[in-house]
Simulated assay, not measured.
Amino acid sequence: MPISLIDRLFVVLGAVAGLAGVVAAAAAAHVTGTGSLGTAADFLLFHAPVLVAIAIADHVGLGRAGLLRLGGALVVLGLIGFSGDLAMRALTGTPLFAMAAPTGGTLLMIGWVAIGLSAIIPRRA
């Protein structure tokens, strides 16, 4: 069975998150005073495999597709807000946008709830 375009996109976004996490971790290790950049890197690296796993879970029918994909989208948006804000503040001293980190963190939490619910709520026949 061929993998859907949305599932391919989650794999690509997982790879991008992983790459950005490694870059941010390297920058945090070599630039002084950027502790929040290390946190941004950690969050990117922790969530990158989740995005790949979402594509796999969707492809094999493990969770309810709509909720699984919604959870993945929320994780992506949450990473942009949370890690993006921490990285921007560490590197430029300015926020990504007002309330970006708390909004991103909230989206990450809601994304995890959606991913969990996708495994509990049965798929449509």
Rank of each mutant, 00 (worst) to 15 (best):
G111Q: 09
T92I: 13
G35R: 13
A15R: 01
R123Q: 08
A87T: 00
A87F: 00
A28C: 10
G111W: 06
G66N: 07
D58R: 10
A41I: 15
G105A: 13
L44S: 13
F46Y: 15
P95W: 12
V76L: 03
A101K: 09
S118F: 04
I120R: 07
L107W: 11
A17T: 09
V31D: 05
G84H: 06
G93R: 11
A57V: 11
G104V: 12
F97H: 02
G78Y: 06
I3N: 02
L70E: 03
P102K: 09
A55I: 07
A40G: 13
D85T: 01
A27L: 15
H47C: 05
V23G: 04
A28M: 11
G14W: 05
A25P: 06
I115S: 04
R69P: 00
I120C: 02
L107C: 12
S83R: 07
A15I: 09
T94M: 11
G38F: 12
A98I: 11
A100E: 04
V60C: 04
T103D: 00
L79N: 02
G14T: 04
R124S: 10
V22I: 14
P122N: 06
G78I: 07
S83P: 03
A24V: 08
H59E: 14
H59F: 14
R123D: 04
T32V: 12
T103R: 01
A57F: 15
G35P: 01
L70T: 09
P95I: 12
L45R: 14
G66Q: 07
G93S: 10
T94Y: 10
L68I: 03
L9C: 08
A26K: 00
H30M: 12
P2L: 03
V52D: 03
I3S: 05
L74D: 00
G21F: 12
F46A: 13
L107E: 10
A15H: 01
